[in-house]
Amino acid sequence: MKMLVNVMFPVEPFNSMVRNGKAGELIGRILEEIKPESIYFTEQDGNRGAVMIAEVSDASAIPSIAEPWFLNFEAFCEFRIAMSPDDLMKANLSNLGKKWDETQ
Rank of each mutant, 00 (worst) to 15 (best):
P68D: 11
M83V: 08
I53C: 02
E78C: 01
R19L: 04
P85D: 12
A91N: 06
I53Y: 06
L93C: 05
P13R: 03
I39C: 05
I39P: 00
L96I: 10
V51G: 03
A75M: 08
I30G: 01
L4C: 05
D87Y: 10
P13C: 03
A75E: 07
S84A: 09
A66G: 13
S38M: 08
A50W: 02
C77T: 15
E102Q: 14
A82V: 08
A91V: 11
K99T: 14
I62D: 07
I65G: 01
G21F: 02
P63D: 10
R19K: 10
T103E: 10
V18M: 08
A50C: 10
A61P: 11
D86S: 15
V5P: 03
N92F: 04
K98M: 09
G97E: 11
Q104N: 13
K99H: 10
I53F: 08
M89Y: 11
F41W: 08
T103M: 07
V5G: 04
P36E: 03
W69V: 07
R48C: 03
F70W: 15
A66S: 14
T42M: 11
E74F: 12
G24R: 01
N20D: 15
E32M: 06
E12A: 08
A50S: 11
K35L: 06
G21C: 06
Q44N: 13
N15Y: 06
N6P: 00
S16H: 01
F70K: 10
V56N: 10
F14I: 03
V51T: 11
P10S: 09
A54S: 13
K2A: 04
F9A: 02
L88G: 06
I34Q: 07
K90S: 11
S57W: 11
G49F: 06
N6M: 11
M89A: 14
E25V: 01
P36N: 06
A66W: 05
K2S: 06
T42F: 05
Q104P: 08
G24A: 07
M83T: 07
N20G: 01
